[in-house]
Nucleic acid binder design. Structure first.
Length: 491
RNA sequence: GCAGCAGUAGCUCAGUUGGUUAGAGCACUAGUUUGUGGAACUAGGGGUCGGUGGUUCGAAUCCACCCUGCUGUACCA
């Protein structure tokens, strides 16, 4: 016989299957987050996975590489793309429905987004984002509200206040500083921002070389620099190292007057902190001069939630984790669709990253308990039952409905295996108990309950088969009517 | 995209200076145990040695090209 060539059960790179405990925890987090967003007065919105490419594509990082980074194709009429975030679709939605919406408009959205980029450890091409935004106000109160919402949500998800900080800055400050240093070329500005964004990873020296001539990485690959002169570089490095203490209560005055834009940023930050300082997250929401965020469309306040504990990968090594959430003000995004001013501010939580982090917090280990398994004794018994002097089929369904109406996860074994195979199955499903109801039980009107949980514990001490078989206290027989109560004791 | 490293069973890997029929552990199936999960023992299934071409009497092993993966870097709305 010629062998068929089998398909390989592979996934496209950057995509993963999820199962069991991980998914249960993910659903639980989503529930917590949704409830909290509603508590803060946000209303839900759902938009399609696909958008018309043009509507979400204008803010691609490189104009000369349109469509890179997204999954898209042309239908009969338009180029359409899977969304790469939830912000661009929000802008489109607000543009379409502006007149009907409350101003400000507060909405949250949970959804999958797709990015056609190189995947890495903990970085996928499909992931879940959770966003909350306030559209239609320039009031800094809204920025403060979403920052507080971010902090509050992380705590409700199970982080303690000492597990994270939310670093805050204002785009106007940094660009104001650059303006004062006579760096005005837009490309230089965005590249400078991106270089500063790498401070965490590359350190001051790395940022310096990226701002100057360029940098060689470990593999010998060379990255071209921004080409600033040494004086400008020195000033920038100084500024990004003033950091948290600079704004403990009120701003340090050392850069006052360097440019109008800078002063405006400081005013906004002062206003922002006046709000967060009286919230319960005064110590978590802190100023950080080196926070810039690589995203192009931010116009004012920016913030990022950073975890303060180490996250490990599957092999137990610490990994470079990045932020679990962030956001900021983007006053020009919505107005692409609309003549009116539609300033906006919001946050985004990377749910899958948060999930990985939460799984490493001890209090979050969910155990995926399987169903109580009712073992089936005779193959084809459902056909064979009539004519016997005992009835074996109907009681299975009776037992099943007793358990299920008591809210106990349960099932009749639906495979073809022997009793032994059924036990193995129940074991693998992490079932708390197996129920045996065969000829013996049927004649006496009883059921046998095998306590798989207790058996599992006992098995660690048992060395040989004889002891295992003798260990009968993991099994008991009860009257049919007592079944539910006995099972409940095991759960 | 650029650079470095790596690809042998479902998974993790061994395979000597090129030499018979390519191995181990885990996982899987069955039996020892005809109605009982673990452990142990026994047996079994499973491989185009990433692909193509070349060198050679002989290639998993050496060479060339290609593909894929990992790591770093760039990009990351």
């Amino acid at each position: 016989m010629v062998k068929d060539k089998k398909l390989k059960p592979e996934l496209a790179s950057g995509f993963i299957d999820r199962k069991g405990n991980e998914l249960i925890l993910k659903d639980r987090l989503i529930e917590i987050i949704k409830r909290n967003f509603q508590l803060f007065g946000f209303e839900p919105l759902e938009t399609p996975g696909f958008e018309i490419s043009e509507n979400i594509g204008k803010f691609l990082p490189d104009e000369d590489r349109p469509m890179s980074g997204v999954f898209g194709f042309k239908d009969d009429k338009d180029w359409i793309s899977l969304r790469y975030d939830l912000t661009a679709p929000l802008a489109r939605y607000v543009g379409a429905n502006f007149n009907d919406l409350s101003k400000p408009f507060k909405r949250y959205q949970v959804g999958t987004v797709w990015r056609n980029e190189k995947p890495g450890p903990g970085r996928f091409r499909e992931f879940t984002q959770v966003d909350a935004d306030v559209v239609g106000t320039k009031n800094i109160l809204a920025d403060a509200e979403v920052a507080i919402l971010l902090a509050d949500t992380l705590v409700k998800c199970g982080l303690s206040k000492s597990d994270f900080i939310i670093r805050v800055n204002n785009r106007k400050c940094l660009t104001g500083i650059l303006e004062g240093l006579k760096i005005k070329n837009e490309k230089q500005i965005i590249n400078t921002i991106r270089a500063i964004d790498k401070k965490d990873r590359l350190g001051d020296e790395g940022v310096k070389s990226l701002l100057g001539k360029g940098r060689k990485d470990e593999s010998g690959d060379f990255t071209k620099g921004v080409g600033l002169d040494p004086k400008q570089i020195k000033e920038i490095i100084n500024y990004i190292n003033t950091d948290i203490e600079f704004f403990r209560e009120a701003p340090d005055a050392s850069y006052d007057g360097i440019s109008k834009l800078y002063d405006e940023g400081i005013k906004e930050l002062t206003n922002f902190f006046n709000n967060t300082r009286v919230s319960e997250f005064r110590d978590q929401i802190v100023y950080s001069s080196s926070l810039v965020r690589g995203i192009e469309y931010y116009t004012g306040t920016i913030f990022e939630a950073e975890l303060l504990f180490k996250v490990k990968n599957k092999k137990g090594l610490d990994i470079e984790f990045g932020s679990v959430g962030g956001g900021g003000r983007y006053d020009n995004l919505v107005s692409r669709f609309f003549k009116n001013d539609a300033p906006a501010t919001g946050i985004s939580i990377g749910l899958d990253r948060l999930l990985v982090a939460m799984q490493q917090k001890e209090n979050n280990n969910v155990e995926n308990i399987g169903p109580v398994v009712i073992c089936v004794f005779e193959k084809n018994q459902f056909l064979a039952s009539p004519g016997k002097d005992y009835d074996i089929t109907a009681p299975y369904y009776k037992i099943l409905s007793m358990l299920r109406s008591a809210g106990i996860k349960s099932e009749i074994y639906s495979g073809d295996g022997s009793i032994k195979a059924q036990m193995k199955y129940a074991d693998k499903r992490n079932s708390p108990a197996a129920i045996l109801y065969g000829e013996n039980e049927a004649k006496l009107g009883i059921v046998t309950i095998k306590n798989l949980k207790a058996g599992k514990e006992a098995s660690t001490k048992i060395q040989n088969r004889e002891d295992w078989r003798k260990n009968e206290n993991i099994q008991e027989t009860v009257k049919l009517e007592d079944l539910v109560n006995e099972i409940k004791k095991l759960l």
